[in-house]
Amino acid sequence: MGDEGPQRPDRVVRAPVDGAAAVRRLLRPRRTRSQLIIGALCALLGFGVVTQVHQASEANLSGLTQDELVRILDEATDRADALSVEAADLQRERAELESGSDTREAALAAAERNAAAQGILTGRLPAVGPGVKIVVSDPDGQVRPLTLLNLLEELRNAGAEAVSVNDHRVVASSSFVGSAGEVVLDGQLLVAPYVWYAIGDPGTIVTALGIPGGADAAVRRDGGRSTVTKSDNLTITTVVDAAPPRYATPVPASTP
């Protein structure tokens, strides 16, 4: 656009217009070269506007100035610091919870061991271990319940932990009643020979049974005969169902 254009007309000055005439003047097509240039510039403007809107909606970092980038970086760093502190807190809490569950597992394992021991002692669980097999024969039918009770007491004194007679588990509440030759154990009539299995230290049990005037001697006095066999691996499979206590309840743990 030079000033030297010879064909350029003098500047056209029209009167100001208002209202509808103004709209008409704005929209009137004028097909001159400069109008085409103006149209091209407006196209450029529209193109630029759309491009910028599109660009701004993408909101990427490359359009930001250095100051803004530094500020964003600062914010990100602060946020990362806060998050790492939070992560450390959570990890500590997790470690505490894990150790807490370890304690609980240890208590549970102890309770299970306890339950196993109690189960064997009360006859609720099958038991296996070293022990003795005692066969008490009663050819004359003269072995009294008291004799068998003596034998049981002797076994208990010798440390027998699980005892069974003729496939009946003998527990703390077991009783030998009846009469000679018709011994009833916990309501079950026992038929001779009486086969005992006792899990405990075999040596101790054999010695205990054999002491003068002891269980063996009592059986012989009744006309019976007992044979003791040591075993390294006895299995007592019979169990009893321990009835839940009707009156007694455990002492609360918190009570001294």
């Binding site: 009137r28 149209g39 407006c42 529209g46 506007v49 491009t51």
Partner: peptide, 24 residues
Amino acid sequence: MIALIGLALGVVAGLLLQPTVPTE
């Protein structure tokens, strides 16, 4: 009038081309 048409053309071109602005 021509200016309006040019503006519309530019908008349409921008929408169609979706140009990427150079970083500089």
